[in-house]
Simulated scan of single mutants.
Amino acid sequence: MSIEVENISKHYGEQRALDGVSFSVKKGEIVGFLGPNGAGKSTLMKILTTYINASEGKALVNGCNVISQKKEVQLSVGYLPEHNPLYLDMYVREYLNFNRGIFNTSKARVDEVIVLTGLQPEAHKKIGQLSKGYRQRVGLANALLHNPDVLILDEPTTGLDPNQLVDIRHLIKTVGKDKTVFLSTHIMQEVEAICDRVIIINKGQIVADKKLKDLRDDKVQTVIVEFDYRVEDTFLLKLPNATTVKNTHDFVYEITFATTSDMRSHVFDFAHDNQLKILQLNQKNASLESLFRELTSTTNQTQKEATE
């Protein structure tokens, strides 16, 4: 196992941020750690990266104990925290060269991660001059410098515009082909677009652990697409097996299909034939959304507690 968590709890005074959390992540998995704000996602990630210690329980990363083998864990983990810590006055290449010394990696590796994360056009700039999307790329490049086996990413797409969002998603999937990726988010679309599996945490406890494929309703699927121009609903309804179309905002549409086939290729062909550009194209997992609401809704939990 790449990550093993066994009965982990974390207390801050009387507050219990984590309460008996247990799960494991296999090598090569991309797992989404989903939960509302304040659920305990960042706390667990700080424990896995040795930044803080758990109050109770045990955690292993690549077979190394996060308390007794901290250096070994740090060498095997690439970490991008929620608030990406960067030296804004340093140039991109300068910053990466500075950090490579910590792991004693080669100068050639700096060039490799710059290419891998698409930083070539911005490598000569100061980090303070970069957009939020490119700053996230710098953070990912830094996390990849020592070629870790495990990537731990805390809210890696927060605050990005739609174009940056698509780029970072693609980048995470690319680097995740030969690494274990454990990423936290409170956005279900991120899990759907990137992950193989979802773990849902609420109020410090794991409330669900599911494969994405097990949550999909094969009879109905919803595709979310953003064009660069407004499209009439009637035209989208002409797509094969389309049953409903909803314009959620601006040029973003949710199209529901009654079929087991993946309809994203048909939406792509529609855009091409009508000279439209696609800014995002994802499947929406209605079952995942329903599960999340059921397990994390304050109203539902209040009603449940009242009956117990």
Rank of each mutant, 00 (worst) to 15 (best):
T298Y: 13
T105L: 12
H272S: 14
G139S: 12
N97F: 11
E6L: 10
F257E: 01
A208I: 01
H11G: 04
A242Q: 07
I3H: 01
Q205T: 11
I199H: 01
C195S: 11
C195I: 02
K211W: 11
Q275S: 14
K41A: 03
D250A: 14
K58Q: 13
A17H: 06
Y95S: 06
Q69M: 10
K10G: 03
G78Q: 04
I194Y: 01
H266E: 15
V198Y: 02
G40R: 05
N202I: 05
D250I: 08
R264F: 03
V110D: 00
I8D: 04
K210A: 11
H124W: 10
E4W: 06
K213C: 12
F33E: 06
K27Q: 15
I278S: 01
K70G: 08
G133P: 05
S24L: 10
E94D: 14
H146P: 08
K26Y: 09
Q221G: 10
V61I: 12
N62W: 07
H266D: 14
T256W: 03
V110K: 07
L96T: 06
K219W: 00
V73Q: 01
E232C: 09
G38W: 07
K70H: 00
L80A: 09
G101R: 12
I187H: 10
K46D: 09
G139T: 09
